[in-house]
Amino acid sequence: MAIDAEQVRRIAHLARIGLAADEADRYIGDLESILTMVERMHAVNTAGVQPLAHPIDVTQRLRPDVVTEADQRESYQSDAPAVANGFYLVPRVVE
């Protein structure tokens, strides 16, 4: 399957990965070889096979609706790079 540099840049952007100018071309090769491997699965007849949602064949255990977590804000915020008035602070983002 063919991939171009534009697609690589787009995927990198969506994943917020920085790419140097020459890296896009290198990743074209890497990604194409991954896709070639995946493409081999096309040869398998999957008619009537349900898509696999999870490799483990058990179902979800549910949790009773009770509050079990104590407030640990001070502890969590001691690891944060910047906090003020109980808020986490990040570089300004406005849509």
């Binding site: 003020a84 986490y88 602070l89 990040v90 983002v93």
Partner: peptide
């Protein structure tokens, strides 16, 4: 929630 007018120049996040 992201609050943009709490701290000047920064975005304040309440989770």
């Amino acid at each position: 929630k992201s609050i943009h007018d709490q701290v000047p120049g920064l975005t304040a996040v309440d989770l």
